[in-house]
Nucleic acid binder design. Structure first.
Lengths: 210, 210, 210, 210
DNA sequence: GATGAATGAGTTTTCATTCAT
DNA sequence: GATGAATGAAAACTCATTCAT
């Protein structure tokens, strides 16, 4: 009996999760292409081959669906960052690994990148009831992790103490985002690898050379 | 008699322009606070103390109103840039003047800053019928002007030739925008002047020291 | 002094009448092309090169303008009919003259013809506040005049007494209108002169041959 | 089980069709009374006891609703004509059957009659996106059918060859429409049966008597 | 649990009409 | 008398959300 339950429920659950994922994927695709306001629940339902009612069984309203989508993307990004920053090597190597990983994550997932820009930049209106603050907190957490790497590098004497670690992190993020943005607009003209030229200069400049 | 005529017609015209400006100011305020999609024509009309009809006498539709607003702001920004980059002094001084002027322009006009972010960043959906391209072209023009200053500085041997001038411009913009963004989110914690620390490092690094 | 007045006022009056006529001509042109509901007062004003205010100095509202237009057209038609039916010759000749004159009037004035159809046919909605009844009364008056000619022709023994004169008039109108309609739709395929074939048959059939 | 399914699905469908029909009936009533431009979607919705949204679930826009209405009426009329002209008897009898059937159809359905007039007559503006041409084509098809009967009657020697069959059809239509119009305006004064007097004369005149 | 027909508040837009200059 | 800027009611249409089946 227990076995039955253990198997019975999970199967349904798995299917449910699968449907939920399908809806979120469709929503990511549509929102990233056309924007939150230009996509209706009916369009998502139709594209995902569900009925509107079903969407409302998974998410309490349109905003909730969006929030779920955004949150999952943010967590995926943070996870990628955590892995990269936890990679073996000294602080400069960790950061380099992160720059490459971030590039790979986003250039392989354009919809995610578009959403990333529309949410982290552009003073997000739409008061999606606190989504903002949630995301900002997550992003701040990410910045802190990068800051820690800079700090650790400074403490070890690897990096010069030119700026507070936090601003180091900010500048690094600012540069990588800019190159992602350029790449998104015109991948031919601005291959993401260009970022390496600039970050190399950046690291050369902050590094302590014996 | 002629004087009368000369004054009589402009008076109406001047008033009309004044009303137009009032509408645009109201729209700037509301759009920047709540976003294009969350502001209805009725709200703008009410706030500006005109009737909806009057809005439509000035602008053919909501998009046209928005476009007019954005275009005027963009031109104002470019004008500010042109003046700063044309100021006396060597290339490093010109760029410094620009950084300060940009900061002053935007920190004195928060609504303008919000619109600036929501349009230049955030992969703008809503294809406001080519507004995008128009703006991008204007922004590109601005970047070219900054690039020229870098180029001229390099030609004179003032700056090292570390990157193409265009990417120099991009990085400079990216840094100033980042600090404007930080300032907007928390002016106490991130006074715009912080930008000076980073740009000083930037210029020290690219400068040729005799 | 009196002379002055006599000349002074009439001049102004003449000009006023001229302007009024210009407005009505413009309105005829536009209404006949696009229909009452698709033409705004602003369009008429612009086309006639007056301001909206001026239109309202001549006509109390849009309906009044339309009514004035229609009424003048109706009177013009009745006048044409009266002249034709009063022409020399026997009853058959009078009616023939009328058929030709009606054709000439309308084929030379397509806008008038379109308005004629849109008002006499098509159960006129738009309750243009009794305009309907007015026009119907005028049209009925016209039908009576034609009826009288038929009656007179019957009394003289020229026409057989196959139908009441009123229905004779109705049938004659119905035939001429039909051919005008066909002509309007495709003047090449349906030249108005075709009406002669049918009316000849009609008259041969109702005529008393000695 | 199968029966259940067979009945289960159609039930919803049947209800949907029923609702659609209710909306169209209401629209017919209102449009025929007040005209297309004087009836708003809200009025139709209210009268039909649905919400506006429901109207838009059935029809993509106001024009589409109107087009659907008109097209159904036109097909109904053509069907009636086809049946009448296919009735047993010689050509004169077929045409007589048609005249009677047309009278019955329209005098039993005044709204349909009003719409019929407002669409077939009155140089229709509003270019309801080709509805015009569609209807004209349908009407032309009807005229062709009547023409064929006249032609067949002529070929058999039943009718004189006084006019091309097409114009015979036109004249017949013109007469029946005129009498329907008279009846609509004042049913007491002009009972539709009056049409018989005129058509009898018409047929006597075109018939070959041995 | 899934469905999709029904809802109606809210949005953009038009246009006849007024009235201060 | 002419002007045209301002008005605002009313129209067409959208879409997030509900709920009976």
């Amino acid at each position: 009996m227990q076995q039955k339950k253990k198997k019975a429920l999970p199967r349904k659950d798995r299917q449910k999760q699968y449907h939920r994922k399908q809806i979120l994927n469709t929503a990511l695709d549509l929102f990233s292409k056309y924007g939150y306001h230009n996509i209706s629940m009916h369009k998502i339902a139709k594209e995902a081959e569900f009925s509107v009612g079903t969407l409302y069984n998974f998410f309490s309203d349109k905003e909730d669906l969006y929030r779920a989508l955004i949150t999952e993307l943010a967590l995926e990004f943070l996870d990628c960052m955590k892995k990269a920053l936890g990679s073996p090597g000294d602080e400069a190597e960790k950061l380099h690994t992160y720059i490459v990983a971030k590039g790979r994550l986003f250039t392989n997932n354009i919809p995610m990148l578009r959403i990333y820009f529309s949410e982290t930049r552009g003073s997000s209106f739409d008061a999606k009831a606190g989504l903002d603050k949630e995301l900002r907190a997550l992003y701040e957490k990410g910045l802190q992790q990068i800051s820690l790497v800079f700090k650790s590098g400074m403490d070890k004497g690897l990096f010069k103490k030119l700026l507070e670690p936090y601003y180091m992190a900010i500048v690094l993020e600012s540069i990588t985002n800019t190159f992602l943005f350029l790449w998104l607009e015109d991948p031919q003209r601005h291959p993401y690898e260009k970022v390496e030229d600039v970050t190399r200069l950046f690291f050369e400049n902050i590094r302590n050379h014996p």
